[in-house]
């Protein structure tokens, strides 16, 4: 069973808020899914090359040219909090 601490670690990494009253249910659900996928452990895959892309193709390369015009006005209109051209977030202390 996934521990409460484990669920907390995952939710922090993923930046999701898990309400305390949901913690147990979520842990059970995640545990069941992880238990299900764990059947892969027994699969006879050995050292076979992992398949990341279905197609064995190489990355295409683009010419180094400026082509995109930035439409600041439209982009700003869609942003939750913009001032003086900056996106704003609560103060970050480094």
């Amino acid at each position: 069973m996934l521990s409460a601490a484990e669920v907390k670690r995952l939710s922090m990494l993923a930046r999701l808020e898990v309400r305390p009253e949901d913690g147990d249910r979520l842990a059970r659900e995640l545990d069941r899914i992880l238990g299900f996928v764990r059947q892969l452990e027994a699969a006879p895959a050995g050292e076979i090359e992992p398949l990341v892309h279905p197609l064995d193709l190489a990355q295409p390369l683009r010419d180094d040219e400026v082509r995109e015009q930035v439409d600041c006005e439209t982009i700003e209109r869609g942003a939750p909090d913009v001032a003086e051209g900056y996106y704003r977030v609560p103060r970050v202390i480094e």
């Binding site: 909090d81 001032a83 003086e84 900056y86 704003r88 977030v89 970050v92 480094e94």
Partner: peptide, 15 residues
């Protein structure tokens, strides 16, 4: 870049 001295209680983000 994060800009910390532009706003009193916010960090500004310039991408």
């Amino acid at each position: 870049k994060s800009v910390h001295d532009r706003f009193p209680d916010a960090t500004g983000i310039d991408l």
